[in-house]
């Protein structure tokens, strides 16, 4: 049975029959698993392992659907990727959905189905959830929040303070795809392109590095992109990071859009890439491990850490051998006019 209404109304948030139908027919139908019990106030989780990892994230992307994903798949990948790069296997998610009055049920269905698919692919179960309906004009269509629980599985310690001078930085694939795909999907600039978001689970990537000794730290370069991750590391370690421009994978179409609108791809969000810092003698093996994975073909060693008196900087060695300081993102870049 499917929900009979075509659009979400305030009645779907009133705690009564409409809400029960929404939960049963949309959410439970796509997300059902042996832990989820829509009638219980809370559920018991059995967690194999001693080091339980816990994280949370909110999702407000516009538009709600874009080439390569939707707010639904993003709500799974965003949270499970944060667990994955911290060395965990994600196991359970909670889901909060804030739905605006007037949202098409068909759209909500697609998004929840997308979320369910992403959860299954990532091997994570939605164990608890809540829905709220907001009056028209008080929400961006659909906002989602997910909280994730996982179990630490990395054989060594992953932490920024494990990073040493001489370590190298790797990225698992081309950067900036998500940022540009979402921007093009907004159709704000009258540009079209076939760039798909890289939104995906990074679990295969982070798992692959468990067999590689010398992995110090991993992070997924989401908001603020590659440069923001580099700055977080530089600030925490006091090391100078030099990125090698020709080694950083960027798709030509992403470069083209960036050139037209005055964006810098190094600051654009990814949703399915991993930046890893590894010991210099581990770089080749880490790279091999990533390149062997589907979608890992463009993985690349992109930079190195150095101890300097004036540490904490991020530099870019350009194609011609010039050096450019990559500063922290100041504000949203404005499109250029000529």
């Amino acid at each position: 049975m499917k929900l009979e209404d075509s659009h979400i109304s305030l009645a779907h948030g009133n705690g009564g029959r409409f809400m029960r139908e929404l939960i049963d027919e949309v959410f439970a139908r796509h997300l059902s698993n042996d832990t989820l019990d829509t009638n219980a106030d809370s559920v018991a989780l059995s967690l194999p392992g001693e080091r339980i990892m816990f994280t949370t994230d909110g999702f407000t992307v516009q538009p709600l659907e874009f080439p390569g994903g939707s707010i639904g798949s993003l709500a799974v990948h965003g949270t499970t990727n944060d667990l994955a790069v911290a060395g965990a296997d994600p196991l359970f998610l909670s889901l909060n959905a804030f739905i605006e009055e007037g949202v098409e049920v068909a759209l909500l269905e697609r998004i929840v189905a997308d979320l369910g698919r992403a959860a299954t692919e990532t091997g994570v179960r939605v164990a608890a959830g809540d829905t709220k309906v907001l009056p028209r004009g008080q929400g961006g269509g659909i906002y989602l929040a997910t909280t994730g629980i996982g179990v630490y599985r990395h054989p060594g310690v992953l932490a920024m303070n494990e990073i040493r001078a001489g370590d190298v930085m790797l990225v698992s694939g081309p950067i900036g795809d998500h940022g540009i795909a979402v921007m093009l999907a907004r159709e704000q600039f009258g540009l079209r392109g076939d760039i798909r978001s890289d939104a995906a689970s990074v679990l295969p990537l982070t798992r692959a590095l468990r067999a590689v000794p010398g992995v110090r730290f991993m992070r997924d370069p989401t908001r603020g992109g590659l440069v923001s991750v580099a700055h977080e590391i530089a600030r925490a370690t006091g090391l100078e990071i030099t990125l090698d421009e020709p080694s950083i994978p960027v798709r030509p179409a992403v470069t083209t859009v960036c050139d037209m609108l005055g964006y810098d791809p190094f600051y654009l969000a990814c949703e399915g890439r991993v930046v890893a810092v590894v010991a210099p003698d581990a770089a080749a093996e880490a790279l091999r491990a990533w390149k062997a994975l589907p979608g890992g073909g463009d993985a690349s060693v992109i930079g190195e850490m150095r101890a300097l008196v004036h540490g904490g900087r991020v530099l870019l060695k350009t194609e011609l051998g010039g050096l450019r300081i990559l500063e922290e993102l100041e504000d949203d870049p404005l499109p250029r006019i000529c």
């Binding site: 350009t318 194609e319 051998g321 010039g322 050096l323 450019r324």
Partner: peptide
């Protein structure tokens, strides 16, 4: 646009 390309490529220091 020229100044941007010059600065981004780091031409001044090469």
């Amino acid at each position: 646009g020229h100044e941007r390309s010059i600065s981004k490529a780091g031409l001044r220091n090469v």
